[in-house]
Design a protein around this nucleic acid. Sequence first.
DNA 1: AAAAAATGTGACCATACGGTAACAAATATA
DNA 2: TATATTTGTTACCGTATGGTCACATTTTTT
Lengths: 189, 189
Amino acid sequence: MKKDRAATEEKIYKSFLYILEEKGPQGVGINAIAKEAGVSKTLIYRYFGGMKGLLLSFAQKGDFFKSLLAIDAQKDNLENLKNFVKEGTKELRENVLTQEILRWQLLENNDDTKSLFKYFNAQVGKTFTINEKDDSLNSAFQLMIGGYVYFTLLSKFNKTFITTDLTSEATWKNYDDAILKTIEMFSKL
Amino acid sequence: MKKDRAATEEKIYKSFLYILEEKGPQGVGINAIAKEAGVSKTLIYRYFGGMKGLLLSFAQKGDFFKSLLAIDAQKDNLENLKNFVKEGTKELRENVLTQEILRWQLLENNDDTKSLFKYFNAQVGKTFTINEKDDSLNSAFQLMIGGYVYFTLLSKFNKTFITTDLTSEATWKNYDDAILKTIEMFSKL
DNA sequence: AAAAAATGTGACCATACGGTAACAAATATA
DNA sequence: TATATTTGTTACCGTATGGTCACATTTTTT
């Protein structure tokens, strides 16, 4: 039998990503990852230091929201802010891994996940630079972004929210438009 | 030993509520409920038909958002709508059971939870009568309510969202105000 | 009082979880 | 080539899960 630690680590890491994407936070576990990787679970402890170390590796390597950083640098004017919103909501709905981390934060916060959430939130904070002032636009903007996250996560197991079809592209476009329109209205005050 | 089916059923049901409140959806299980009730788990199957039946009982008995129905009946004018929002957000942040059901909907949707979510969502739909039109106010309102739910759920394990303090009463008042202000602005269009 | 029905318990099953230790095999070093 | 060292597997442990079955005890009915 051929032995290759680097390749084995890669198999483990990729399996972790796969399970988080496919099964969500509840599916992530030592046994499941080892089985998916086709490898003994002992090696997860030896090479990564168990689940905690594995999540730390993920956190450090994870380039969350990288696609938004370029826009972020120049989102001082209204047009760029609107572009940022459009790209941000698109990124959120396409990046399943990001969705599952966000879902995870609603479930637990223990010794294993601590580092992951810390790195992730730091990255979010860097990307979504929030207005310092506690004005209504700031709060409204936060609520809408939060709502976007909520409905995105909800859409995994629910087809509708009350009468709103969460599977329809038009719905998400309506949400986008509503955010943009609200920003405009507040800016004209 | 005294035998009293009605009392036993009550013990089981109350234990279920207690665990859902204290441990969240992940803590809800046959063994945990039986242990908390100090009763053999066989009885959960015999009296309720297992977890599925237990959740069905909960769904049918559950008077979700009952405090909002009175306001709902007359929220045609702006003042009542604003009052409805204020009472609704308050109800949401105070009712842990409601929070955990909402959290649950983000985690799974299987044969056991199906009926619970169905009843719960029907009640939500009755309370939050959403505007039929796909206008921006409707979408903006939905996003903000969704955001409110999201931050409420997030606050269980996270003290902040980026720089916003989720433990501060002022934060939630800011959110309330932002919703009210947005509604006003859209109404004046 | 005797028989039947309802109520409740404990034991057991298969499965899965995280975690560890003993051992085999391959690779690197001497 | 002989010896360490690294890599990997298997087996096992304690605990927990959902679910069922046989049995004992209490309550109801005849």
